[in-house]
């Protein structure tokens, strides 16, 4: 295994001049390639903020975050955008697909930003849609897809750039039970077969149960960091929901 994320003494305070809120407090975190990790904790514990810091969407007030050996806190805004494009995949709670683009175009957009050639884009799109089981929905717009299908497209989009790891902020929060299980199956399979690193922020027990490592945040600090003994990723459902 090799290190993907190495965060040292990371802190983030909101409203430092008015009513300061210490969202992340002196967090030290180390993640290896291929991990399937859940960030859990009560609302306001700093899960999303920590995820944003690890994903380079926010800058910490203190500390450093190394992704594959690059300190992203030292990168310029433009360099950070490029870094995110090529190294980090994001899955958001409310899917955040672009409504005017089809499922295929949503995924292609990332690769076009990377200036990939058309042949490579087509091959990758076909592979990803086969993996998420939506080969027949390529030309469908998000509004015509169910919540579960939209989130699966969002996963395909997150993986399109072949990132070092995927950050998923409460990915199952807006999904029904069946869709959530189906999504977790897909992500677990990708993790197991392609060694893709996933980090979730979640309240969902189904996600927590299937994570191999569970980090609990309380008041912006790591309260517990538990690695499960089994190296097998539980795989509860083989059949995907269309």
């Amino acid at each position: 295994m090799n290190t993907v994320i190495d965060a040292h003494q990371v802190s983030k305070t909101f409203n430092p001049t008015t009513i300061p809120i210490l969202a992340v407090n002196n967090v030290h975190l180390h993640l290896e390639r291929g991990e399937f990790t859940a960030l859990v904790g009560p609302s306001g514990s700093g899960k999303t903020t920590l995820l944003n810091l690890l994903g380079g969407l926010d800058k910490p007030d203190k500390g450093s975050i190394f992704i594959n050996g690059v300190d992203i806190t030292k990168l310029s805004p433009n360099a950070l955008i490029d870094f995110r494009l090529n190294n980090i995949g994001f899955v958001f709670q409310s899917f955040n697909l672009i409504p005017v683009l089809t499922a295929r175009e949503n995924v292609e957009l990332i690769m076009q930003l990377q200036h990939k050639d058309r042949r490579e884009i087509n091959e990758r799109v076909e592979t990803l849609f086969r993996e998420i089981g939506l080969e027949d929905k390529l030309d469908t717009r998000p509004a015509q897809l169910s919540g579960g299908q939209q989130q699966r497209v969002a996963v395909a989009r997150a993986l399109a750039s072949k990132p070092q790891f995927v950050l998923a902020d409460e990915p199952t929060a807006n999904l029904d039970s069946k869709s959530a299980t189906n999504l977790l199956d897909i992500m677990a399979k990708l993790n197991q077969e392609e060694n893709i690193t996933f980090i979730f922020s979640t309240h969902d027990v189904r996600v927590i149960e299937r994570a191999r490592r569970v980090i609990t945040l309380v008041d912006g600090q790591i309260h517990s960091d538990t690695a499960k003994v089994s190296t097998e990723v539980p795989h509860t459902a083989q059949k995907r929901t269309p």
């Binding site: 955008i81 490029d82 995110r84 494009l85 955040n96 672009i98 957009l109 930003l113 990377q114």
Partner: peptide
């Protein structure tokens, strides 16, 4: 706003 923020998060640079 949210969508533009998402595009930026995914890697669409300021010029684009």
């Amino acid at each position: 706003t949210r969508e533009i923020g998402m595009l930026s998060a995914l890697g669409m640079n300021r010029k684009k």
